[in-house]
């Protein structure tokens, strides 16, 4: 296990380095931030001064080396716009995104697996058909449109829930601002969380249903019945555990993208998370922030994949991580 983890960390490091290079080159190619940063009526001297201050006058390879050198020391540069370390700004915004995606993850997995199980066990029933029809709706409707519809129904027409913002927050662990601990924050979170959940839940429902239908006719399920084991235990032990294997893979893969690109939901509900920060930064060509953001994303996804691999071995004993002797 340890050998595996070490080797895996090495691979992850390689991915991070490659990504850093690609991201830096990519961002370099998308335009000159100075044009946006200086006032429209600024003279040539002013432009030259800003260019020099930001270090944009140096050749690309030199800029890259400076970036790489600083990155190794944990410094991903200062934001052009805010004038503060980019990482700091991202980390400030991160709790908002993390708590939103965490709620959405729990909801979409919990609901998705249960509904998918029902639809898989009784595919011909009214409940099964309704669930499947609903799931098609769930991932066919564009996310932003779903979000606006939710706002229209629950905020505008019914007036039950706030349409945007994060509401009251409290600080925990000295500095982490979270909303789920206050009533107001929780109320603000409901709509964006539902918005983020619907698509992923539909995906999980379809996967869970398909896998359930594959597992149920297996000999080991019939053998369990022939042993006289109760239907409840067959469903929740024999079927569920086998069904979770592909579900964990997909949920794991999706989680990374959910955290990194909750952009649409955050924009629709003005949720002050990382996704909204990214969009704003791209608009302002705030290079250090974009780079830092994408680096964070790479780290998050690499970490999640590692965790999924470990969960795998817990679910499926046939999977032994390469490097572990068994």
């Amino acid at each position: 296990m340890l050998v595996y983890l070490i080797r895996r960390l090495g691979q992850s490091l390689l991915v991070v380095v490659v990504m850093a290079t690609l991201v830096f080159l990519g961002v370099y190619a998308i335009g000159n931030p100075v044009d946006i940063l200086v006032a429209p009526d600024a003279g040539a001297a002013e432009i030259a001064r800003v260019t020099e201050r930001l270090g944009l006058d140096k050749p690309m390879w030199q800029q890259f080396l400076t970036f790489a050198g600083n990155a190794l020391q944990g410094d991903l540069g200062d934001s052009f716009v805010y004038g503060r370390p980019a990482l700091e700004i991202i980390l400030e915004r991160m709790p908002a995104t993390l708590e939103l995606t965490f709620v959405a993850l729990v909801l979409s997995t919990g609901l998705g697996v249960s509904l998918g199980l029902v639809a898989g066990l009784w595919p011909e029933s009214v409940a099964g058909r309704t669930i499947m029809a609903g799931s098609i709706l769930g991932f066919s409707l564009p996310s932003f449109w779903q979000g606006m519809l939710l706002i229209m129904v629950f905020s505008v027409m019914l007036g039950w829930l706030p349409a945007g913002g994060r509401g009251d927050t409290v600080e925990i662990f000295g500095g982490l601002r979270v909303s789920f601990l206050t009533w107001d924050g929780l109320v603000h979170m409901i709509l964006p969380a539902i918005n983020l959940t619907i698509f992923k839940m539909s995906l999980v429902i379809r996967l869970a249903r398909a896998t359930t239908r594959e597992v149920v006719p297996q000999d080991y399920v019939k053998f369990a019945r022939a042993k006289g084991v109760s239907r409840l235990r067959i469903t929740f032990v024999h079927v569920l555990k086998n069904m979770m294997i592909p579900v964990v893979t997909i949920v794991g893969l999706e989680l990374g993208s959910m955290i990194a690109f909750a952009v649409v939901t955050e924009t629709v509900f003005s949720w002050p998370g990382m996704g909204k920060l990214l969009i704003d930064s791209i608009n302002l060509l705030d290079r250090p922030l974009i780079v830092a953001y994408l680096m964070m994303t790479v780290l998050i996804i690499v970490t999640i994949n590692l965790v999924v691999d470990v969960i795998y071995t817990l679910l499926d004993p046939r999977v032994r991580l390469a490097g572990t002797s068994a």
Partner: peptide, 18 residues
């Protein structure tokens, strides 16, 4: 399983793999 038990054809498939 109590008074009438069964043994299946393919032993690779009759035991739950997980």
């Amino acid at each position: 399983g109590k008074r009438i038990a069964m043994i299946f054809q393919d032993p690779m498939m009759t035991l739950n793999p997980v």
